[in-house]
C-alpha cells in the first residue's frame, strides 16, 4: 500500500508532467486563462490518465511485449514497435467513447466539460503516461497509481497557473511580454518551486 501511495505522490510532485517533464504544455498554456476551465481540464485529464494507463498496461503485457504471445505459439514475436500505434488508438477510442456516453446520458456535464474531451486525444501527457509505463516496467496496480498521480499533478499545476494568471489580469506588463511571454516566466518560477520536491522521494 505504501508503495502505491509513494508512486502516486512521486508521479504527482516529483515527475510533474507539465512543470518538470514539459508534457501537455500546449493545453496547459492555452486553457489556463480562467480557473473554471482549468478545473474542468484537470478533472478530464485525471479521469483519462487513470483509465488509459492501466488499460494500455494490460494490452502491452498481454499482447505487445516481447514473448507475450508465447501461449499462442509465437514465443519469438516482438510486437513492441506497434505499442505507439495501439496506445494512441486506445486513447482516441476512449476519448471518443466517453464523449458520446456523456453527451447521451449527462448532457449538463457535457456542456461543462465536453469541449475539453477531443483535446485529450492530442494531449502529450496522456500518451506519455503510457509510454513511461512501458519504459519503467510498471505492474498493473502501479500503473493505476502512476496514471492517477500524473493526472493529479497536471491538474494541480494547471489550476495553480490559472489562479495566478487571473491575478495578473490588471497588471501593467510591457506589451511584448503580455500573454504568452509572462506565462512562460510564471511557469518557469513554478517549475523552480516544484524542483524542490525532487528531494522528497530521494530517501
Amino acid at each position: 500500500m505504501s508503495d502505491f501511495f509513494g508512486l502516486f505522490l512521486s508521479a504527482m510532485f516529483v515527475d510533474n508532467m507539465p512543470l518538470t517533464l514539459f508534457l501537455g504544455l500546449c493545453t496547459f498554456l492555452a486553457l489556463s486563462r480562467r480557473p473554471g476551465t482549468a478545473v474542468g481540464l484537470g478533472i478530464a485529464v485525471i479521469a483519462a490518465m487513470g483509465f488509459t494507463v492501466p488499460l494500455n498496461q494490460l494490452i502491452y503485457t498481454s499482447v505487445l511485449a516481447p514473448g507475450a504471445l508465447a501461449w499462442a505459439g509465437f514465443p519469438d514475436l516482438d510486437l513492441s514497435y506497434l505499442s505507439l500505434l495501439s496506445f494512441i488508438g486506445v486513447i482516441a477510442a476512449t476519448v471518443q467513447l466517453t464523449e458520446m456516453v456523456i453527451d447521451r446520458f449527462f448532457p449538463r456535464i457535457y456542456a461543462a466539460f465536453g469541449v475539453f474531451l477531443p483535446l485529450l486525444t492530442v494531449h502529450c501527457a496522456i500518451l506519455a503516461g503510457s509510454l513511461f509505463m512501458v519504459e519503467r516496467n510498471l505492474t498493473f496496480t502501479q500503473s493505476i497509481a502512476f496514471g492517477l498521480g500524473s493526472g493529479a499533478g497536471f491538474a494541480i499545476a494547471v489550476i495553480t497557473l490559472s489562479a495566478i494568471r487571473v491575478r495578473l489580469a490588471y497588471a501593467d506588463l510591457p506589451s511584448g511580454l503580455r500573454g504568452l511571454g509572462i506565462t512562460f516566466l510564471l511557469t518557469g518560477l513554478m517549475s523552480l518551486g516544484f524542483s524542490a520536491f525532487a528531494q522528497m522521494v530521494a530517501q
Binding site: A169, P174, S175, G176, G181, I182, F184, G188, S191, S195
Partner: peptide, 30 residues
C-alpha cells in the same frame, strides 16, 4: 540544464520577438 531555465529562455525569446515585431503583441484582455 534544469527544467526552469527552458521556460525562462523561451519566455525571454517570446518577449524579444514580440518587442521587435510589435504587431504580434497580444491585446489587453481587461
Amino acid at each position: 540544464l534544469l527544467a526552469p531555465s527552458a521556460f525562462f529562455m523561451l519566455g525571454g525569446l517570446v518577449w524579444a520577438v514580440r518587442s521587435a515585431l510589435p504587431e504580434q503583441a497580444e491585446p489587453i484582455e481587461h
